[in-house]
Structure formats: structure tokens, C-alpha cells
Design a protein around this nucleic acid. Sequence first.
DNA 1: CGAGTATTTGAAGATCATCAACTGTCGTGG
DNA 2: CCACGACAGTTGATGATCTTCAAATACTCG
Lengths: 237, 237
Amino acid sequence: MSASASSPVMCRAPQRPASCDLCVVREQSICADLGPRELVEVEKTMARRTVAKGRALMQEGEPNDSLYVLVQGSFRLLKHLEDGRRQITGFIFPGDFVGVRPTGESAYTAEALEDSFVCCFPHKFLDAIADRCPDVKDRLIARGQTEYHKAQDHIVLLGKKTAEERVESFLHLVAKSIGGDGDGAVTETPLPMPRQDIADYLGLRLETLSRTLAALKKRGAIRELSRRSVVLATPSD
Amino acid sequence: MSASASSPVMCRAPQRPASCDLCVVREQSICADLGPRELVEVEKTMARRTVAKGRALMQEGEPNDSLYVLVQGSFRLLKHLEDGRRQITGFIFPGDFVGVRPTGESAYTAEALEDSFVCCFPHKFLDAIADRCPDVKDRLIARGQTEYHKAQDHIVLLGKKTAEERVESFLHLVAKSIGGDGDGAVTETPLPMPRQDIADYLGLRLETLSRTLAALKKRGAIRELSRRSVVLATPSD
DNA sequence: CGAGTATTTGAAGATCATCAACTGTCGTGG
DNA sequence: CCACGACAGTTGATGATCTTCAAATACTCG
């Protein structure tokens, strides 16, 4: 009866798409701007990578010279304070980008929450493509703005919302990011991250998160809750 | 003895620089990438604007089609929650950009904290320049990343820091943004924003901010404190 | 099945919020 | 030039939310 951890959404093994033509996130990625000729070239040169659960795509303070597009799986982005406190600044879902700019000192760490699959575009390679496809740069600018706006929403959440509001906002955010279609059907939303990560994203303690989830369940805002997924009440309820 | 509100830093009237050659923020702006020919063109076409204290450069939810570069003065960026709570997501100081992308629905409001002076680049005009100076787009991408990183630091501040840490981080941030040179000399840092804006930036109540400032003064982290400026203790103290 | 980890629940305490009153500052006008 | 009114900021007392410390329970993996 409870949302099972063995539900289909949870256990797709990361699998390299046969070609870009079949790529699930093609339309959201920079590839959408490429003409057929460029696409062929990209397909030959671009690196694909699987990233095992817990492994980092980049580390805070270390150099990074590639743009990654997440095709399957999920990541957490996090920053550390000197004394070890950690803050999760965001989660990455399929279609999202990491490393929009090359940096000598990455501002954050990106760690896989599950076995994941990414496309890797070294920036020097990307610059060459951009010469022929100026739209690529526009897409990078646009994506940077999207990230910034998400960060601003996060700031509002942390600065002004109560624990209960934070948790509800978070759950809807994940549902929108993963669930995708928002067709109104009652769907199970996977939560690939552990509670501690959610708490560190929301600026709450683990225990407070747990209590708040329980309260939302009791209040009816959450239909079903298991370790790795939730079913949210539809807004019309 | 206390930092006087009539100190020179506080009362520069916004004044249009005679030409881009004299622009104080030239090197930080997109103009730095322009060749002499483009610069002449920019200087003829670009709009300059003074913005009176309290006036908005753009409004949350309303369209915006220009990039603004702040030359003199300061702005607050803010977002509203449906019930009226407001969160300040950032402050803008000379050299900073607002409106990196044209949008039909601006994500935030930008209001002048004092009489200010901006250069205004309509995006359609900017695109034309970018065709001849591809570096301009790189600079926009880079600036977008800088904004994003600042937002991430803000997220860490709100999610993990105590009231006292937040206030201290904020004061150092402003000192670095405005004071500029960080030459170690004991300098008065202007605070062009009212206490309520600082509180709304830090996710604290006005009263808590006031008490915390008092505590920092007592502890010695703040040398002098007045309504519109602070003198911070040097780290070596 | 059992060890180890993740999550939940309980009780007590701290930080920050709230409500209220007071003080200082600035601009205006007598 | 000083007095006054309005608003910004500070200070005080009390309370709520969230944290902390502690222990129990549930889950996962070998």
C-alpha cells in the first residue's frame, strides 16, 4: 500500500542513449540549437559519462572545464562553511546543466544522488561550436538566468518561509522538476535524496523536517510518504 | 565622534560622466570588450538615465527589455510572496548589471536606494553589438555566473548562519562591494539601505538586526555605527 | 537473519519573533 | 535657530518555532 521503493521510476539503470536522436533531454539542451551537421560532429566528439551514486562531477574549489548536461539520474549541489556545516544549494534533474562556465575554482560540489548519466562538453570544444552556432551562447545565457531565478526562489524560501511552507514548496518543486507533465493525475514523485539532503536544502534540522513531513501527512497535503517517494495531494483536494 | 551622515561618501549627486572614457565602471562593464569603433557607436546610441531614490528600474512581473549597468548609486532587488512578505534578494552597487536577459515577466523588482545613475542597453541594440564583438556575450555569461554565485553565498548565509554571522557577513560584503580597494585602512562603509532592507536581506526581523548590531558593537567587531554607515574593526584587531 | 544506517519520535532548551514602548534623527516651519 | 511632528531605529519582556540531545523504530544490504 505504501509507495514502494521498487516502483519503476526508481530503478532505471543509467543507459547511454544509442544516439542524440533518441536523447530524452535533447530539446532542453544546447543540442536543440544545433543544425544537423553540427549535431553529427557533436555526437562524434562529445564525451558521455556515467557517474556512480555518491561520486562528484566537480568539487568546490577545484577547477572545472566542462559543461555537463544531465540525461538521467540526479545530483545535489552543495557548499561548505569552514567549520563543516554544509548547505545544499540545489538539486539537478534530467535536462539541467552544471558548469555553464569554465572555472579555476568551482563554487560548489556536484554529487550524484544515484547512478547517473551525463553528456560532457569541454568548453574549448563548445567555443568552437558556438562560433558556427551563435544561438548556443544565447542558450547558455538563458540557462544562467534560469539558475539565478531558481536561486532567488530558494532565497525567498529560506528567508521568509516557515518550516511547513518550505517543505511543501520543496515537494512541489521536485514534483514539477521530475514529474514533468503535471497532467493532474495523482503521481508518485521520487525523492532520490536522503532526508539529510532535503533538510540541508531547506535550512532545517533533520528532525524538524521529519516532524514537518509527518504534520503535512496528517494535514492531508501529503497522501503517501515513504523513504524514497511521496504522493502529493492534488491542489483541488 | 560618530560616523556623520554628512560624510563625503554619502552625498555625491548622481552626475552623468562626460563620456565613456571617464566612466568609473568602464572596466567592469561590457564596454571593456568594445573596440574604439564600437565604443563610439555605443556612446551615441546608449541611453543614460538618472533614477530617483525609491523609483524602480524594473518591476516583478512586468516586462523588461534592457540591460542596465549601474554607474553610481545603489539598488535593492526584491521579490514578494503572495501575502505581502518581501525578501530582498540582493543589492546592486556601481559596476553591477541588472537585466542580463530580456524577459516578459521580470523575476524581481529593482528599486533605487538613493538617486542613482545607470547606462541602459536595449537588448535589441546589444545583440547588434554582440554580432561584431562576440566577447560581449561571454561577458554576459560570466556575469550571470557571478550573480548565481553571489546568490549561492546568500543561500548559505540564510540556510546555515546564525543572526550574528549573517550580520557580520553582510557588513563585510557591503564593505567589499563599495569600499572596493580593501587596502586595510580603517574606512567608513556607507549603508545606503534602511535597516528594514538589511533585515529583509538577512531573513531576520528588524528588531533582531538592531539587537545583533548592538551586540557586534559591544563585542568590538563594529567600531562605529550610525544610521547610514559603519566602521568595521580590521581583521587584525 | 542481523548489523548498520536512515528515519521517526520525545522532552527540554535556545534563538529568534512578536508586541509594545521608548529614543533618536531629520526635515519643516514658526 | 529652535521646536515640533513624523518616521527610523533601539530596547524590553514574553512567547513560538525550531534546535538539541536522546532513544526508539524502520529499512537496507550482505
